[in-house]
């Protein structure tokens, strides 16, 4: 399908916080309480519209367990946006945010937009992390923040779309170098036609840096 831009996202956070459920809710608009474990990396895509432009979101959903980081790290590099997810009913997932953030900052490009997400907001009765704490953490580290529920779909659209808006604004401001695919942004065929500096075919053929 024709799109103006393609943004690559990565979803990170502790195991069991609901990363895969967020992705499924966003791409398929459904919630699956029992699902298979994410081993390695999963993948989803959806089209959205921002400022009248079709934007394709390509989302990489990663395994949360510590030992998988060496595998998932390689997916940071080509990402324009990251959703950093914790579970509001489990404080330890909030406590681990700092290490996740360090990891993300270290392995991604410096312009990557990071959205902090407190998931499972439907489980208010079991809340262990206050909304204010999430907000404070986001403020302190320059992230956007939102509480979502993959179960009720509350704020899920907004989380993905607001991140995209932020990236889009950065493109408008000229912060992102859209010609460098390592930034996680690709110009679509529809756009490329009007953009004489880029040939549309170039994007597809560029091979990655190998597997090591």
């Amino acid at each position: 399908m024709a799109y103006a831009y393609l943004f690559k996202y990565i979803i990170i956070g502790d195991t069991g916080v609901g990363k895969s459920c967020l992705l499924l809710q966003f791409t398929d608009k459904r919630f699956q309480p029992v699902h298979d474990l994410t081993i390695g990396v999963e993948f989803g895509a959806r089209m959205i519209t921002i400022d009248g432009k079709q934007i394709k979101l390509q989302i990489w959903d990663t395994a949360g367990q510590e030992s998988f980081r060496s595998i998932t790290r390689s997916y940071y590099r080509g990402a324009a946006g990251a959703l950093l997810v914790y579970d509001i009913t489990r404080r330890d997932t909030f406590n681990h945010l700092t290490t996740w953030l360090e990891d993300a900052r270290q392995h991604s490009n410096s312009n990557m937009v990071i959205m902090l997400i407190g998931n499972k907001s439907d489980l208010e009765s079991r809340r262990e992390v206050k909304k204010e704490e999430g907000e404070a953490f986001a403020r302190e580290h320059g992230l956007i923040f939102m509480e979502t529920s993959a179960k009720t779909a509350s704020n899920v659209e907004e989380a993905f779309i607001n991140t995209a808006k932020e990236i889009y604004e950065k493109i408008q401001e000229g912060v992102f170098d859209i010609n460098n695919e390592a930034n996680g942004i690709k110009i679509g065929p529809q756009h490329a036609a009007t953009n004489s500096t880029l040939s549309g075919s170039q994007g597809g053929q560029q091979a990655g840096g190998g597997c090591c």
């Binding site: 474990l37 081993i39 390695g40 990396v41 993948f43 595998i71 390689s74 597809g204 560029q206 091979a207």
Partner: peptide, 20 residues
């Protein structure tokens, strides 16, 4: 060409012996 490395699809094949 599509930048699809084996880690994208084969990690669960190895770690679960295809069981997942």
């Amino acid at each position: 060409q599509q930048e699809i490395g084996p880690s994208l699809y084969a990690a669960p094949w190895f770690l679960t012996a295809f069981a997942s």
